[in-house]
């Protein structure tokens, strides 16, 4: 009798232990996905029962961690070059053509705080002397940083702005530099600009897409994964029309 009464507790403990023992799907995600991915991971778990966790860093940092054996199952980069590097090193698998899988395209925006005492963000703001500090992501390690530098070169403004750049480790940190008011403008990802906090605190200007090479964001399956099936399911989920529409609402351009 007493055992029966405790049965649900035992069952609960057993269930919890089993749940804890199952390793989640580990997603290495480019920093521009930080505002976008959490609800998608929750929906994925709701739809499939697979728990997924994400780590957000610059694409270069994640690439070098994966090359050195970091236990990720999927890598969502902010461009094609970093996942391609993993494919070339046989550390990851993309589409059948040996290329990463396009899951979205990124958009670069110029963002300023409302209380920065600057004119509305525009190309003229970049040209003028009002700007003291422009936050960008590291062009070597973050595709958005590379796009920012390319855009400044296209505008012929790189030389004049170079000494006024504050370089962040990744694009989320670039957004944080300008959101915290320490830099007065930033070339950041539209995904950050569309978060409730940044929407409320400032304004953005979409940089003409002709100014920088398209930010084609590529995904790969990590070769060493023990959860290939779950990882593939996650990629399919990411490419499904519903989720692609959701990406479009959060500042990314759908893949197709």
């Amino acid at each position: 009798m007493r055992t029966i009464r405790f049965l649900p507790i035992f069952a609960a403990i057993f269930f919890a232990a089993a749940l804890a023992a199952q390793t989640p799907l580990r997603v290495a995600a480019a920093a521009d996905l930080q505002p976008v991915l959490p609800p998608i991971l929750a929906q994925f778990q709701h739809a499939t029962g697979i728990r997924a966790e994400a780590t957000y860093k610059s694409s270069a940092v994640l690439t070098s961690q994966i090359l050195n054996g970091a236990p990720f199952d999927v890598f969502l980069a902010a461009d094609f070059s970093f996942p391609q590097r993993l494919i070339d090193a046989r550390a990851a698998q993309g589409a059948s053509a040996g290329q990463p899988i396009l899951y979205a395209k990124g958009t670069l925006v110029l963002w300023t705080r409302n209380d920065a005492h600057l004119p509305a963000p525009s190309l003229d703001l970049l040209r003028g002397p009002a700007l003291h500090r422009l936050a960008i992501a590291n062009p070597q390690s973050a595709p958005y940083g590379r796009a920012a530098v390319a855009a400044l070169h296209s505008l012929g403004l790189y030389a004049s702005l170079q000494s006024r750049l504050a370089t962040a480790e990744n694009i989320a940190q670039a957004a944080q530099f300008v959101y915290s008011g320490n830099a007065d403008a930033g070339l950041i990802s539209m995904t950050s600009a569309l978060t409730p906090q940044l929407r409320q605190a400032g304004r953005y200007f979409i940089l003409p897409r002709s100014l920088y090479p398209p930010l084609r964001q590529g995904a790969v399956l990590i070769q060493a994964t023990h959860q290939r099936e779950a990882a593939q399911k996650f990629l399919n989920f990411l490419l499904s029309p519903a989720i692609q529409a959701q990406l479009a609402a959060s500042g990314l351009t759908p893949a197709h």
Binding site: V61, T63, S64, R85, R133, N138, Q140, A166, A168, E169
Partner: peptide
Amino acid sequence: VLMLGGDIPGSTRTLSIVLYNQVEAF
């Protein structure tokens, strides 16, 4: 330095940041 520096050559890019950038650049 990583949180506060902004990686500006000659004023906030210290050796430890250089090392980090070099590792990131493979």
